[in-house]
Design a protein around this nucleic acid. Structure first.
Lengths: 349, 349
DNA sequence: GCGCTTTAGTAATGCGTATTACTACAATAA
DNA sequence: TTATTGTAGTAATACGCATTACTAAAGCGC
């Protein structure tokens, strides 16, 4: 189980120098005066013995770990329900590798309950990770984050819904603008009866805000907000299907359906076909996420694409700058989503 | 940047005991005789000071880290192209949490080149992770894995193509049986002209074996193997679309198209519709993966579902047993995929 | 009242590295 | 010649915990 460790001491012995010298050479210490010849001896000895520094010892001595934590606060089954987090990891991985850092992925269901709150806090305070990125906003997050930030712990929050806490470094995708843009697009096409399929739980701040923005955009454009046109889905195609059916079966159904994500839009499209209606002639549909199947729905789905991988990169960069600089200065960054117009929307007749 | 650490020494001071006692109490050491009263004092002091053990120090002292590494050997853009890895992480996360372990995700493009090979080897030999799961098979993997295993390092390989190296602990999904089952299903429906859209690179052993199995199944059933019916896609819908078009435009096109994954099947379905053909009356289609959109293609896609999350769980369990037990005994495990019959296949006319 | 065991702890050490403070020697400057 | 500055290293220590070896006091049988 336990590998026989080769220590720097053994390397030193073999090279006929002190352990200090080994450390100096292998870390290329700035003010060490080691002759080229000795350096070579150390390198050779290290290679011959297949020396690999013990990370625990190094971290302890340096007082800093070489990993950053990605904390995912989201119910188990939802973390990887869509490519959002994978894409973030992908981007983060990129900058982590460039900086010689490891990524620790830690998923936790929620933060209600002191024990879970402490679990996250302890993970970071234990020094396991030299910094952390927290994804998944809820009010309790700031309870964890603020004390850590006050202590100078490098922390970056991901995707805080608008009105961000000023003092917290964060990188977000401006989903609210995305929602507005998408809604306006429907309005510009002449739709005035716009259904909406959102998803729960309604305690999710992100979802709430998006819904509010949807309504607000309608209001500003003087498009009637019809409460009966709102459906609560469950994130997945089946729920979108059911919700769409119930919308279509109304006496005066909507001419457009705004789906809060592509998966539900997928179900909605099936429902519309099932009722013998045409897209977009009879009903327009939009989704959100631009998942891989979106170009291949029939007709191809108009949706919003978020720069998720870039989000991960930016978050990583910000975190690293916080880790390196004494300064606690930072700027909150906001990335914009992109409207992907395909064929699922048409002008209202 | 650096949190002011609370050390066990400070806790000891506050509780009026020795550091040893603090360690004994907080770790609930088996043969320590500490009175209930003293225990309480220690607990109180620890809580009051908000003490969190330093993980680097703990790991060093214990000689073992509390994290396990998930090594992903796959090109950057393909790691998260489908939910395979996310699902594995999901399952792995489950058992990791139950065992108080962290997950370190390390992605590396390939293993050609000594530097990359060493990077992985060093990560594990550095003791950063107490064990590792390696996903992404290529011959070089065993170059990394074998020496580590010989040294007793706990290692589990994921999804080695059949004919596994006997001496290596691994957990796999039996994709070859999946391919056979799917192919046989088409044959049983009477298809004798079966096109195949595979994906590259052809150096990928997994892909090669699957293709071989596809052909072998045809051969055994005396179904002609028509080389012109083979297309090399690029994993994504667009390539499936193009490949399918070129199959359909042949003088004597296939009556069924076997797609090596759902994404390409998605494109193929679009191509079939584009040529004005009906599914499954004119052409049958199968995919592989059972991605979320599969029930909602038109018609719903018949495909193969792999127990990916379970794969992660099993791998985690096996790894943990290797980490705990002195014994190096293990059993290679193979999980079966499940045929999901929907509506994209019909009997040949 | 003597040895023996149990109870309730503590002192000391080790883990493997990074780093600080020091040394021996040579080269140079005054 | 002597003081000064490099040069090329080394010895010693810190990092914070776990753990082993030890101790002082109390309990107990006889």
């Amino acid at each position: 189980m336990k590998l026989r460790r080769v220590t720097s001491k053994q390397v030193a012995e073999r090279a006929g120098v002190s352990q200090t010298t080994v450390s100096f050479v292998l870390n290329d210490a700035p003010n060490s005066n080691i002759s080229e010849e000795t350096r070579q001896r150390v390198f050779d000895a290290a290679r011959e013995l297949n020396y690999v520094p013990d990370m625990a010892a190094r971290n302890l001595a340096r007082g800093r770990s070489n990993t950053i934590a990605l904390i995912l606060i989201k119910p188990h089954e939802k973390v990887f329900a869509d490519p959002y987090i994978p894409n973030v990891i992908s981007g983060l991985n990129h900058v982590a590798k460039a900086n010689g850092l490891r990524i620790l992925v830690h998923q936790v269901e929620t933060l209600t309950g002191t024990s879970q709150l402490d679990a996250v806090s302890d993970l970071l305070r234990s020094g396991e990770a030299a910094g952390a990125i927290i994804s998944g906003w809820m009010p309790e997050v700031s309870e964890v984050a603020q004390p850590l930030l006050d202590d100078g712990y490098p922390l970056v929050l991901l995707d805080i819904p608008d009105a961000p806490i000023e003092a917290i470094p964060c990188v977000s995708i401006d989903h609210l603008s995305g929602v507005r843009e998408l809604t306006q697009y429907l309005i510009e096409l002449g739709h005035r009866r716009i259904g909406c399929i959102t998803y729960g739980p309604m305690t999710d701040l992100q979802v709430q805000k998006r819904l509010t923005m949807f309504r607000e955009t309608l209001r500003i454009a003087n498009v009637p907000i019809i409460p009966e046109f709102l459906r609560l889905g469950a994130y997945d195609p089946d729920s979108g299907y059911a919700a769409a059916l119930s919308l279509l079966d109304m006496d005066e159904p909507p001419t457009a359906i705004y789906c809060m994500n592509d998966l539900m839009a997928l179900g909605a499209i099936a429902a519309i076909h099932e009722r013998g209606l045409r897209i977009p002639e009879d009903v327009s549909v939009v989704g959100y996420d631009d998942m891989r199947f979106a170009p291949y729905t029939v007709p191809a789905l108009t949706t919003m694409r978020a720069p998720e991988s870039e989000l991960g990169e930016r978050a990583g960069e910000l975190l690293i700058s916080l880790m390196n600089k004494k300064t606690r200065k930072f700027k909150q960054q906001v990335l914009r989503s992109q409207l992907i117009v395909r064929n699922s929307c048409g002008v209202v007749r």
